[in-house]
Amino acid sequence: MYRKISAIVIPTVIAVGIIVYMLYSVRDELLTAIQHIKPEYLLIAMLICLAAWWLRGWRYHAILKSLSYDVSVRFATACIFVSQTVNLVVPARLGDFVRVFILKHEYNTSYSEGVSSLVVERVFDIFTIALLGLISIFFVLNVPSEYLLLILIPLIAGMVFFVFLLFIGKFSSKNKYIAIILTMLHEIKKASLTLKSILVLGCSSIFIWLLDILVCVAVVLMFQQTISFAVIVLAIVIGNLVKAIPITPGGIGTYELSMAIVFGLDGVDPAIATLIAVIDHLIKNLVTLAGGIISIYSLGDWVIPSIKEAFNSKFGGGKQPDH
């Protein structure tokens, strides 16, 4: 019990602490910045965010289809909404496991297929944002060397992983657990390394993250700021790469802090940088939360037990899934 509580409370306290500190440090300038916003861009940002969510659902539909599961785009989008909503509440990206249980319930997928679909999605996401970040660096002055390192690590790791998948067919094992891992790697290869998959998932991933960047552009315009597109791209990239490290639920706090620091490279006032980062993440999280709640009701009352089952499996409070 205490393990479960501390696993949620401690990261949440860290997240809230970071946000409170950021806002408190620029408290005198916040009111002035808020008074000059153009609210129409808030609606634009939300519409762009919804479009990105639909495209994410379409991409996940394509991933599952390559694994021989023909799910609707609506169902695929709902799966992502639910899993990401859980990620806003609990640490360690536990919501990702919820998606595995939802797929098992509705389409009788194996647990390895569910996890494989998640891995494919994550690999394309991380590789794409790192690639966009690498391109943006050429257009931003005085980029700290640690940013380049943060971008290069997932790029190199992604390329090594794909090369490894090319040769996975040469490996086999009679060990139960190694055999499960090899099965998953074969499924990942099937879903990601055909020419069609590379084109479909690669192009859709680029569009998804460009839309995510445009949400931030709309927030920048809402505060009537002029920030170079390359800096906005770099801010989104660094924010998401840091958020990928599951320190706090949904990357809350670490995402905003990373973005605000990057905006400082373009001479953006700290108060404005903080507000843009906080509002950008708030919009995305509120759309996620609303979509998650609607999706839970849309999928049915069995979803909540699936969330509990995933939570128990993660923290050792329930049965561990078999392959």
Rank of each mutant, 00 (worst) to 15 (best):
S173F: 14
I304E: 08
Y111W: 13
A62L: 13
L67M: 15
S192C: 06
L43R: 14
I5K: 13
A260H: 11
G250Y: 13
L282C: 03
L64C: 06
N142I: 11
I10G: 07
R3N: 08
Y107V: 12
G57N: 07
I102N: 08
L149W: 03
N312P: 02
F139M: 00
S197M: 03
I283T: 04
I153L: 15
K308D: 07
A7Q: 12
F124A: 01
L166Q: 12
D70C: 08
L43N: 10
I135S: 00
I180A: 10
L182V: 05
I307H: 10
I307W: 11
S6I: 13
F161I: 09
R59N: 07
I261R: 08
L241Y: 04
A157V: 14
K308P: 03
Q224N: 12
V13N: 07
V233K: 02
K174M: 12
L67E: 03
W53P: 03
L241P: 04
I178S: 06
H186C: 02
A230P: 05
V100N: 00
A130G: 10
F207I: 11
L257K: 14
I153G: 05
G133H: 04
L286W: 03
L134K: 01
L165E: 10
P144I: 02
K4A: 00
H281F: 01
G318Q: 00
L132Q: 09
L150G: 06
V287T: 00
V13A: 14
M222A: 11
I213S: 02
F97A: 07
S298Q: 11
S116G: 10
V115R: 04
S298A: 08
S83H: 09
I272S: 01
M159I: 15
Y255Q: 14
H36K: 11
V71A: 07
F171H: 11
Y111A: 09
C49I: 01
F138Y: 15
G169M: 14
V160Y: 14
I180T: 05
S136Q: 03
Y255I: 13
T226M: 14
